[in-house]
């Protein structure tokens, strides 16, 4: 997995102070990235091939931080220019218009709503919230991002109580079933975001990061 001789892909990892980014940074490094934590959008340069946004905590705090630090503007411009972007968890949810969590406006880059899982039953058992653990992402797209991943699905680690709804179907990268199907990943051009945590998903997660970094280099 580790690329020893190949050129490392320069990655700017958004650090907005909400938590520990060690495992994301290490997973990206292991997947071929040269990772730099950035606390200020002005630290991001043209030499950075990819921008990675691992959202953590509550979305209200996350959006406050993005606006205050002007990462909000950077992310909008970056995605508009189709520069390589990877959002994780809240880094997916924040791209959409609105979240039920704290009745909070998102970045509104894509149409769609973030909703809380409704109480549901599966096989006679109440589904637990948060949706926590390993579940299957079934891929709805094809392409280099999914190299060495099975289209019928791979298991990734999830932990969340909210999901993105009403996403344009052509943007759906993958879906996952928790009571019913929800969108667990999106892709538009070189903008990718997942609800699951590749950095917690062992070999398959690292494979996805590696594919993303290849995409970012080309």
């Amino acid at each position: 997995m580790e690329q020893s001789c190949a050129k490392k892909t320069r990655v700017a990892l958004i650090d907005y102070g909400m938590g520990n980014l060690r495992s994301v940074a290490r997973a990206l490094e292991k997947s071929g990235g040269a990772v730099r934590l950035v606390c200020d959008p002005r630290e991001v340069t043209d030499a950075d091939r990819a921008l990675v946004f691992p959202g953590q905590g509550a979305i209200v705090d996350c959006m406050d931080c993005l606006k205050r630090t002007e990462f909000a503007t950077l992310i909008r411009e970056w995605i508009a220019a189709d520069r390589p972007f990877f959002g994780v968890c809240l880094g997916l949810q924040a791209l959409f218009e609105h979240s039920e969590e704290g009745n909070c406006a998102g970045l509104g880059i894509f149409p769609g709503q973030v909703r809380r899982f409704a109480p549901m039953e599966e096989n006679g058992r109440a589904l637990k919230i948060p949706h926590m653990g390993w579940n299957t992402a079934v891929f709805r797209q094809k392409g280099p991002l999914l190299e060495n991943l099975r289209p019928e699905g791979e298991d990734f680690y999830f932990v969340h109580s909210y999901y993105v709804d009403a996403v344009a179907s052509e943007m759906v990268l993958c879906e996952t079933c928790y009571g019913e199907n929800f969108v667990s990943g999106i892709q538009r051009g070189r903008c990718i975001a997942t609800q699951f945590h590749p950095e917690k998903s062992q070999a398959k997660g690292l494979q996805l990061y590696q594919n993303f970094l290849h995409l970012a280099e080309n």
């Binding site: 060690r22 997973a27 292991k30």
Partner: peptide, 11 residues
């Protein structure tokens, strides 16, 4: 914990 988190990719 630091050493573990740097080497393993699971919760």
């Amino acid at each position: 914990v630091e050493r573990t988190a740097s080497e393993i990719f699971m919760p």
